[in-house]
Design a protein around this nucleic acid. Structure first.
Lengths: 113, 113
DNA sequence: TAGAGATATCGCAAATTATCAATATCCTTT
DNA sequence: AAAGGATATTGATAATTTGCGATATCTCTA
């Protein structure tokens, strides 16, 4: 029951549009689709620990070529819009795509846009 | 042949995200889905003349409650991203959704985001 | 517990966006 | 040709975003 619970609202959708209104943030989301292919072989990509595919900030940072502070801030914008999720393990913070939100967003586009 | 011709590129996609990163512009696009239901009965909604469903700027303007200049500018942002198309007929400029781009955008989200 | 590494936050200057009033342009009609 | 209505453009200011360096916080290890 309650199919609506899967639907994001207009406000959330605009937040997502804002998050994606920057090429580099889009790139980050795209790179996270295939962490193993898109980051250096020695990159810190998680297997196991309940957070498969998570990539740590410094690897994303060196890949996108922006400063650490900007990269961190962009990740937090993606996090706030729930396009990604994060988990801190030790001194590293791992980010990965939040496929649930992305699916809901796709659905929103099809129905509401 | 050439299935790729239907696919928008990353840059176009970011332009679309920017266009949609504003609630009012999203509202305009949504209202244009059903012009007859969303505008006043005496609104200037086109039937025929090869531009069915087109709505003129002043009707959109009074509906969204922003100034004429802002409304016009928002429409031109939507036009540049090709989310809408326009046709000038006499002294009126009619805008309507560009379903082709919207479909391509939907496809882009599914494949690239 | 002091240092070192990873990430987040703060403060800032530059660039961009939001929004309006005023003005210009384009059509139509007289 | 002039007036008037519809839309676009311009100029201006306030607000937001971009992106950085500096600093703070957190966590591990010596």
């Amino acid at each position: 029951m309650n199919r609506e619970s899967n639907m994001i609202n207009d406000e959330q959708a605009v937040d997502i549009f804002k998050a994606l209104s920057n090429q580099i943030r889009v790139n980050i989301l795209q790179m996270l689709k295939e962490p193993d292919n898109n980051f250096s072989p020695q990159a810190h990509v998680i297997k196991g620990k309940g957070f498969d595919g998570g990539v740590c900030v410094s690897d994303i940072c060196s890949k996108v070529g922006l400063s650490q502070s900007t990269t961190s801030q962009y990740l937090s914008i993606l996090l706030q819009s729930e396009l990604v999720e994060m988990k801190r393990i030790g001194q590293w913070t791992y980010y990965r795509r939040n496929e649930k939100t992305i699916k809901q967003f796709e659905k929103y586009i099809g129905l509401k846009i």
